[in-house]
Design a protein around this nucleic acid. Structure first.
Lengths: 129, 129
DNA sequence: CTGAATCCGTAACGATACTG
DNA sequence: CAGTATCGTTACGGATTCAG
């Protein structure tokens, strides 16, 4: 089964770059939540739950920097800041959903493979086929 | 454009888990290269180029643990070890290619957005216009 | 050739305190 | 409410060395 339909070397580096960007601990969660509609800072914080304010700030900034999210400040008192997915962010969301589909379809297989691997490792190699 | 066709909260955590797995610095590159066909250890090392021996080992182990790659040892002298994508690994490769498509289509936009963002930030303190 | 083990620097992350 | 600053801990990754 060969799939050499394009430049693999150049391809993988681009993909790696994207994954370096969204492969961190929080970016995807933020993007997915923002896919539900615009959200405020503490609203996101509450929904995601585990994230620290620092990481939410950093994540949002990174997303904003890459043009995936817009940040709108309403100069009211108290201040109100709304984050929203851009067109680019929406298109990423689509792709991420594809990955989500794969994850949901196969995470059991992964879990099982992992369990078997760990089990075999702890048993040593006394066992043969 | 709303896309609330599924449980978003549960979804994003699963995706995050997968991204935590393949979102590291090397896994995708290895998977993509293995998509070209089975490869030996130092063969991968040479093709990828930048990767250290340690990281290649760790990456391969992780991939093997998750059932994405098989490791076959030929007890010859010198020893020969071949790595190969499993069915699961192949299916992941497909999904990753989707991400690669997105990356190739939009990495210019990202780069530009990033440049604009950084430029605007540096102009903040000093008035340029 | 393949890979494990060790040491070390850096970057990522989290908790807390403070500002506008 | 939204965000910054600082600090400490941990995880990641690279170079080197040793072993089968």
């Amino acid at each position: 089964m060969e799939l050499g339909h394009m430049n693999v070397t150049g391809d993988c580096k681009t993909v790696t770059g994207v994954l370096s960007r969204i492969g961190d601990k929080w970016s995807v969660q933020v993007v997915v939540q923002l896919g539900q509609g615009p959200r405020r800072f503490n609203e996101l914080r509450r929904i995601i739950g585990d994230i620290s304010q620092r990481m939410l700030t950093l994540t949002l900034r990174g997303l904003e920097r890459d043009g995936l999210v817009t940040r709108t400040v309403y100069p009211t008192i108290p201040p109100r800041v709304e984050y929203k997915l851009t067109e680019l962010g929406c298109s990423l969301l689509m792709t991420v959903r594809g990955l989500g589909d794969w994850a949901r379809q196969h995470h059991h297989e992964i879990a099982e493979a992992r369990r078997r691997y760990d089990q075999g490792a702890s048993e040593g190699e006394a066992d043969a086929a």
